[in-house]
Design a protein around this nucleic acid. Structure first.
Length: 287
DNA sequence: AAGAGGCCCTGATAGC
DNA sequence: TGCTATCAGGGCCTCT
């Protein structure tokens, strides 16, 4: 669920709240995330100063002052909550998420600072925390990822060349992080709707014009989503982004059987499965 | 090389 | 009421 825009919103919030803070203590309540958190993780992070928080694709990166990093992935259901000490020295939830109450279950990781702490909650445990020693190791860890949609490397030449012998459908490539990184299942459908391209279109058969559309609409959709604070779907009580409003602007995602919202289009939104992932498109204007 | 499929996990929901 | 089945999907893995 957290795709590039949601992760970007969390990153921005973290930069406002925990930049230049020193980690006083780390508490792991459950090590069994996507990758097992090693036993020395708490000690390794302790006393490190967070210089800044950056993001690549769907990864959040804590940049420490000594050149090391902590790589964080939210998986599908990961959320980060911030608690700050009030004047009575009690922690109050000033979360990045709407829920005024901290979730009771699945609070796996706690990182404490002098006056605040962040809590990582993840019911499905598809996310992870990983300590990275230096820039070289970070680059290696992320080296399998394709360019972000915003990158100048995500250009017409790159697409045309990449698609040369690709017989698979375009929708699968949009969510393939090796091709382009940051787009997930929700935004893939939204992007193709704006392009008027059918999700099952064979990649190698796409015209230059359509490749250009894919590039520009990927950027458009993700930028709009970031400006709307990301998308919040399904569990509105707990996972709803504080400013997450983009779900209200979905043109096709989760709109199966509804009429197409495009001007003068009489089509209907259809839901199909591509590689076991739900995919939404208009049966009239997406060719 | 490319593509298909499976697995990890919990919670919400549907159907009986 | 309580049971079971299905779906949600990001990343990584294996197999052909």
């Amino acid at each position: 669920m957290p795709e590039l825009p949601e992760v970007e919103v969390v990153k921005q919030s973290l930069n406002l709240k925990i930049k230049q803070k020193k980690i006083e203590k780390v508490i792991i309540k459950n090590r069994n995330l996507r990758f097992k958190i090693p036993l020395n993780f708490e000690k390794v992070l302790q006393n490190r100063l967070i210089k800044k928080i950056t993001r690549f694709s769907k990864y959040i990166i804590l940049n420490f002052s000594d050149g090391s990093f902590c790589l964080i992935h939210l998986g599908m259901s990961g959320t980060i909550h911030l608690l700050q000490k009030n004047s009575l020295n009690k922690f109050t939830n000033t979360s990045f998420y709407n829920s005024s109450e901290l979730p009771k279950k699945h609070n796996h990781v706690v990182i404490k600072f002098k006056d605040s702490k962040i809590i990582y909650n993840d019911p499905r445990r598809f996310g992870f925390f990983k300590f990275i020693h230096n820039k070289k190791e970070l680059d290696y860890r992320l080296s399998h990822l394709g360019p972000e949609p915003f990158s100048k490397n995500f250009n017409l030449k790159y697409l045309m060349n990449y698609f040369l012998k690709k017989k698979k459908d375009i929708k699968s490539f949009l969510i393939d992080q090796k091709f382009v990184s940051g787009i997930g299942n929700i935004y893939a459908s939204e992007i193709l709707f704006l392009c008027k391209i059918h999700p099952k279109s064979v990649a190698m058969k796409l015209s230059k014009k359509n490749c250009k559309k894919i590039i520009s609409n990927s950027r458009t959709v993700l930028n709009k989503a970031i400006k709307s604070g990301g998308s919040s779907i399904r569990d509105f009580k707990n996972i709803s982004g504080r400013n997450g409003n983009f779900q209200k602007k979905f043109r096709v995602y989760q709109r199966g059987d509804l009429s197409c919202s495009r001007n003068k289009c009489n089509g209907k939104i259809k839901k199909i499965f591509i590689s076991n992932r739900s995919t939404f498109f208009c049966n009239s204007c997406q060719k």
